[in-house]
């Protein structure tokens, strides 16, 4: 039982990170139906900004996170304006290829600038304390990651549900043409979506940096693809789906490694995804909509 609770906590903190990245994926997808493959790399850039503000500017962790979120929201908007906007009315697959190009560019430009070697977060950035509660080890890092992920998700929910901007975002994702007719600026809404999605990725990046102490230029690929899978698992385009999908993915991976065979962890994760897609093609939270003629 102790072991199970321990594994559950392990899974939750891993899942919180996946969920944060998945949120950005899902928001962008929801609004312009683009699988933004560069999202994981935006997370990487966020992690680097966090790293430099912690180690060079000596700022504290929350300030570093805010810097990273700001920098990445600008980066996200720029990427959208330069690379995706010209393709908004061409095929989605063309945009997908561009996203792959942007992803490669971010990875290898960072690698070129900073070298492929990993950078280590300073110890002082986040002093670790381990708490031992009835044989289950919980560190303040776990708590930090889970709590800040939940807070960010709540803020996001507030923005989407309660504010005018959120309303505009929902409107554009529901029906772009109708939204235009209602006087909503699609360009602006898309930009805001990219800004928010990218800043969430940046937050996740700083969290990964703090949680695992290191950053490197190719760190975004694996969590990026996993988070994408998580978003699809929950039902892509749906914010609650991304959250639940992220946590599920984290717990699933942890449980497979913990109780099954760690060598097959990734295969099982993808296997469950495919199974869910086959049973319920729109993901756990997706609504089935028939094709219209």
């Amino acid at each position: 039982m102790q072991e199970f609770i321990q594994q559950l906590i392990n899974g939750l903190s891993l899942g919180a990170i996946y969920a944060l990245i998945a949120l950005g994926y899902t928001m962008v997808y929801g609004i312009i139906k683009l699988i933004n493959f560069a999202h994981g790399d935006i997370m990487m850039v966020g992690a680097y900004v966090g790293f430099f503000s912690l180690s060079v500017l000596d700022s504290n962790i929350l300030v570093a996170m805010i810097y990273a979120m700001l920098a990445c929201s600008i980066l996200g908007v720029l990427i959208e304006k330069i690379a995706y906007k010209p393709l908004r009315y061409s095929t989605r697959i063309a945009a997908l290829i561009t996203a792959i190009g942007v992803s490669l560019f971010l990875e290898y430009f960072t690698l070129f600038l900073l070298g492929p070697a990993q950078r280590v977060f300073p110890d002082t950035a986040f002093p670790v304390n381990n708490y031992n509660i009835i044989g289950v080890s919980v560190s303040n890092k776990d708590i930090f990651v889970i709590v800040s992920a939940v807070i960010l998700m709540l803020i996001l929910q507030y923005i989407i549900r309660m504010t005018k901007t959120g309303k505009a975002m929902r409107a554009v994702s529901e029906d772009k043409d109708a939204a235009v007719l209602m006087g909503i600026s699609v360009d602006k809404t898309v930009s805001i979506t990219f800004a928010i999605g990218s800043s969430l990725a940046a937050a996740a990046g700083v969290m990964i940096g703090v949680y695992y102490n290191t950053v490197n230029p190719l760190m975004g690929i694996v969590p990026g693809i996993k988070a994408f899978v998580a978003a699809v698992l929950g039902g892509i385009g749906l914010v609650p789906g991304a959250m639940v999908g992220g946590f599920l993915m984290g717990i699933l991976e942890t449980m497979v490694s913990g109780y099954g065979n760690s060598l097959y962890r990734d295969a099982v994760a993808y296997g469950v995804l495919i199974l869910i897609l086959i049973i319920k093609p729109t993901g756990l939270f997706g609504k089935n909509t028939g094709d219209k003629v």
């Binding site: 997808y29 139906k33 699988i35 693809i225 994408f228 899978v229 699809v232 892509i236 060598l263 097959y264 990734d266 295969a267 993808y270 296997g271 995804l273 495919i274 897609l277 086959i278 093609p281 729109t282 993901g283």
Partner: peptide
């Protein structure tokens, strides 16, 4: 089983299968 899926869902399912083949070979 997967070709019943549409668009991006099919994309991700085939991506998943491709990766499973690789992990199994590994």
């Amino acid at each position: 089983p997967t070709l019943r899926l549409k668009g991006d869902y099919l994309a991700i399912a085939t991506l998943g299968f491709g990766e499973i083949i690789r992990v199994v070979l590994q």
